[in-house]
């Protein structure tokens, strides 16, 4: 049976670490989207102007939410989990206490997901500072960030349990994350891409995140967004199962 107490105990450790590193974490979370916004929103925006009726920098500010979520979730899931498992033996220590692998994985991923949900709002807030119009729908963005962050954190945990060494992450980043990042509709609509690439975007969780964020922020959520939500939820369930399976194989011999 899955219990809440161990999950909270693992969060307690994350909280202790966060208290130590919140300044650098927050600095990175705020600065990166600002750079994207300035570079793309203004640099590019002055050429592009408007896109599908949106001001280009509003388009980018909403799109970069997904980028932030991707980085926090996937990088945290891959690197933190790998380092804690292999170098620090943190999980070995924890699993000697009344904690199961699935509780451990759930706790680690959900913490990252909360972080992704919170810091994922940073680009949007920076966007507001640069003229994006506030809307009630923005209140949904942390939740969209959480769900997407969960998918990528679990993906990262899964990957961390199958790579032979930390260098192998290069393949994952270049071969999987970068393409996902490019064909998610962050900087330009996927409809601009060749048909097969646009089709591939349909299985990219990040694309569904971008669609949901824009739907929420621009107040045009519709029935098709249930589809996006469904894809993200299905990905989360699948990734959870994969992450728990492989982590158990690595931690329990």
């Amino acid at each position: 049976m899955m219990e809440f107490a161990p999950v909270r105990a693992v969060w307690r450790r994350e909280l202790a670490l966060y208290r130590r590193y919140w300044a650098s974490t927050s600095f990175a979370a705020m600065t990166e989207p600002t750079i994207y916004l300035l570079a793309f929103g203004y640099g590019f925006g002055s050429v592009v102007g408007a896109l599908y009726g949106y001001d280009y920098k509003d388009f980018v500010a909403t799109g970069v939410v997904a980028t932030a979520v991707l980085f926090i979730g996937a990088f945290g899931g891959m690197f933190n989990t790998f380092i804690r498992r292999t170098f620090q033996h943190t999980y070995d220590a924890m699993l000697a206490a009344p904690v199961d692998v699935r509780e451990l994985v759930t706790a680690e991923a959900s913490w990252l997901a909360v972080k992704a949900g919170v810091y994922g709002c940073a680009p949007m807030l920076v966007g507001v500072a640069f003229g994006l119009e506030p809307s009630w729908g923005m209140l949904l963005v942390p939740f969209i960030g959480f769900l997407t962050g969960l998918v990528f954190a679990l993906f990262g945990v899964w990957v961390s349990a199958i790579v032979p060494s930390i260098n192998t992450f290069d393949y994952v980043i270049t071969g999987a994350l970068t393409p996902m990042f490019m064909v998610a509709g962050t900087f330009f609509p996927v409809t601009q891409l060749p048909a097969w690439v646009a089709a591939a975007a349909q299985v990219n969780p990040l694309y569904h995140c971008v669609e949901l964020v824009r739907g929420a922020v621009f107040g045009r959520l519709g029935l098709d967004d249930l589809g996006h939500l469904g894809v993200l939820s299905a990905c989360a369930v699948l990734m959870w199962a994969l992450a728990v399976w492989k982590m158990r194989a690595r931690l329990i011999d």
Partner: peptide, 30 residues
């Protein structure tokens, strides 16, 4: 495991945390 205390052969303390924080985390875990 809830009834046991385990002291492993290899040190797996949390280096980034303080002595107190290490104990707090395990007080929660237990």
């Amino acid at each position: 495991r809830a009834l046991m205390g385990v002291v492993p052969q290899l040190d797996n303390l949390d280096e980034e945390l303080t002595a107190r924080e290490n104990l707090e985390v395990f007080a929660h875990l237990y």
